[in-house]
Simulated assay, not measured.
Amino acid sequence: MVNTAAFKERLEQILSHYEMTASAFADAIGVQRSSISHLLSGRNKPSLDFVLKVVREFPEVNLYWLLNGKGIFPESEIPPSEDEYNALPEMRKGGPAPTTSEIESIVVFYKDGRFRKYLPSQSKEGGFL
């Protein structure tokens, strides 16, 4: 269940970050202006449709952060951890990428929480399905 007061605060953070009025934000995501007003006043809880429109229109808004406050906003400003930074020093310095003998799978993650896993095909070309 979404905490309405906390959601309101996160929505206000988004408006402030993008320097948008509630009306401009409503127009940007394609909802009625009264929808934003009702959310900001605490009168209504956000619908799933509303949340998906926000994360679709503003990629820096993390779905989990918007819903429950876990994570960081804006998402694009997340600095790499020290472990991530030190993991591939050759790549960071423009050196050769690590080599592997075989790719097991490729996973694509979508902003809405979905993902798709691609496995190597059995063809001689070694492409992905």
Rank of each mutant, 00 (worst) to 15 (best):
F50N: 09
A28Q: 05
R33M: 08
I103C: 12
F7E: 02
E19K: 15
V31L: 09
G126P: 04
P96C: 07
K117A: 13
S34F: 06
K45Y: 00
H38F: 06
P80A: 04
E12A: 14
E82M: 10
V51L: 03
Q13W: 05
G126L: 13
I14F: 00
L66F: 01
L66E: 03
A5F: 07
S34W: 06
E57W: 01
K70V: 11
I36T: 07
E12F: 00
S23N: 15
L40K: 06
T4E: 10
L11W: 01
V107P: 04
S101M: 07
P79Q: 09
D27I: 04
P96F: 11
T99S: 13
V51N: 02
L40H: 01
N86A: 15
S23A: 15
A5Q: 14
V55E: 06
L119M: 12
L66Q: 05
L40F: 02
E102L: 10
S41I: 06
Q122A: 13
E90G: 05
N44E: 10
T4N: 08
I72S: 02
M1F: 05
G69M: 07
F73W: 05
M20E: 14
E84Q: 13
Y18F: 15
G127W: 15
A24D: 14
S81T: 14
K117E: 15
F7K: 04
F7P: 01
Q13R: 12
E12T: 11
Q32A: 10
G69S: 02
Y85Q: 07
A97D: 12
G113Y: 12
S81E: 03
E84F: 04
F115M: 15
S41N: 09
A6F: 11
V108A: 07
F128C: 02
L52R: 08
S121D: 14
F58Q: 06
E125Y: 11
E90V: 02
S41R: 09
F58V: 10
S37R: 08
H38I: 02
N3Y: 00
N44M: 11
D112S: 07
A97W: 14
R43L: 05
P120V: 02
A87T: 08
E84G: 01
S23W: 02
I106W: 03
G94S: 00
Q32L: 10
V55G: 08
E19L: 05
S23C: 14
G30N: 06
